[in-house]
Simulated scan of single mutants.
Amino acid sequence: MRGRVLIIAGSDSGGGAGIQADIKAVTALGGYAMTAVAALTAQDTHGVRAVMPVPPDFIALQMRLCLADIGADAVKTGMLASPEIIETVVAVLTELGAPALVVDPVMVAKGGQRLLEDRAVSVAIERLLPIATLLTPNTVEATALTGLAVDSVDDMRRAADRLLGFGARAVLMKGGHRAGPVVTDVLVTPMGEHTYTAPRIDTVHTHGTGCTLASAIACGLAQGLDAPTAVARAHAYVQEAIRTAPGFGGGHGPLNHAHTVRPFP
């Protein structure tokens, strides 16, 4: 076991996304996962029924105890539902000196439910993005953050450049929401870009792909991989997890997080 990852995100009672998916992905890739639960959700493969945010002071306490005792080589954030929660997370990470920080800007659930308050978007842009090592928006999230339409790969590059301007050190634009037989993700950094492509898998069992990808990347960074290599491994991991999904539930089912047995390149 190598690479300590602190995950700050919401819990998914159905086990396919959120904290549950994060823990599974980090464990499958040989890392050690810790959590600061930022919200509780009642959900299944059909959607989110209810959300209960965790008080910011309790989120901060979870973070402080994990970081002071075990320590972290990377931090991953997911669902941070309110401005107060975002401010708290940023304050603790800034005070204690955040290691590599992967920010998954979770805004909308797979079933269409909003998971981020409207007023939290500007706080995320002003406070969270400037300390992000890597930001992992899909095209819908990128539009919400930048105001730019994201319909093509060139649009993805333009949105990534805008997000770099907000302070993120690297941006992985995820193309899964775009139509077409090939899914293209683009990693953009001030030094250049890397493109990752894969055939689109015809399945509804894609619940938790964003959470899983971001946590897999955070695990790679925690283990000392550079960003392009961490993304490449995470991308391959998620593709196989989708391809071998167990088919559970009557809606958007979970991935097969357990498939990896040789986690290191």
Rank of each mutant, 00 (worst) to 15 (best):
G3M: 14
V5Y: 02
V5A: 03
A9S: 14
G14R: 06
G16E: 06
G18D: 09
K24F: 10
G30Q: 11
T35Q: 12
T35D: 02
V37S: 10
A50T: 04
P55M: 09
P56E: 04
A60F: 07
A74P: 09
A74C: 02
P83E: 12
E84T: 03
E84D: 15
I86Q: 05
T88H: 10
A98L: 05
A98V: 03
P99H: 09
P99R: 05
P105Y: 12
V106R: 02
M107S: 07
E117N: 02
V121H: 09
S122A: 14
V123E: 03
R127N: 04
I131W: 01
A132Q: 01
L134A: 05
T143C: 06
G147N: 06
D151T: 13
S152R: 11
R158W: 00
A160D: 06
L164H: 12
G167C: 02
R169A: 15
A170S: 14
V171T: 00
L172Q: 07
P181C: 01
T184P: 11
L187Q: 12
P190K: 06
G192W: 14
T195F: 00
T195G: 01
A198K: 14
H205A: 06
C211G: 07
L213W: 09
A214P: 00
Q223F: 05
L225I: 00
V231T: 06
A236C: 03
Y237W: 05
V238M: 10
L255D: 11
H259T: 08
T260F: 01
P263T: 05
